[in-house]
Amino acid sequence: MDIDLFVQYGPILLCGLLNTVLCWIVGAAGGVALGFVIAVAMYYGPRPLRYVLRGYIEVIRGTPFLIQLFILYYGGPNIGLRLDPVPAGILGLIIYGSPYYAEIFRAGLQAVPRGMIEAGRAMAMSEGTILRRITLPILMVSSVPPLTNFSIILTKETAILSIVTVPELLYQVQTMSAETFAYMEAMFALALFYWGFVEVISWAGRKLELKTNAFLSKELSA
């Protein structure tokens, strides 16, 4: 492969990488937040709300991410929702990820031992205090590994954003190869890059997981 190519296309590739990382981080963070709200609403909310949210989860999990993006990006203007590619991509990631995150939190909430909560009640704590001081910290400890896991899966989904013209890494590489005709090499290099990227993140995730328990337990009770 040509060094000049990289010099010439370096800036747009870097731009693409930054967009990929931006979409991923904002998308994952937003998805975690939305998923958390959904899970808590499903746990404490009234029955009708629970049914609505269950429906939302099933619909989002049962349809392809690409179609969700098309509805948002191309269908949105029909109902007056006009978004630039990057915000549309980020919003798409948030919506796509939210039901998976919600299910992680929901499982975590259900896994908090009843006795821990009863101990709080027996000690005359209010339900709010119990949620804040006992339920949530225990929930976080058990949820961090699956949260990291799913967030890693989400890095790969960012490649799909190229189809709705989000100028992320894959999109930029395609632009570049359209001009240089080096499709195969470019795609192969990109595959290797993603591979390395995901492996590094997974490795970091596992490291983090090992430290999380001790860290969270100290941090959250401080």
Binding site: K156, E157, T158, A159, I160, S162, I163, L170, Q174, Y183, M184, M187, F188, L190, A191, Y194, W195, F197, V198, E199
Partner: peptide, 22 residues
């Protein structure tokens, strides 16, 4: 396993699309 799970499927598809004819 690590490669095929680590690389976005879309990139795999495009790779096959360009690679096979070449």
């Amino acid at each position: 396993v690590s490669f095929f799970r680590g690389v976005p499927l879309l990139v795999q598809l495009l790779l096959a699309y360009y690679f096979l004819p070449s």
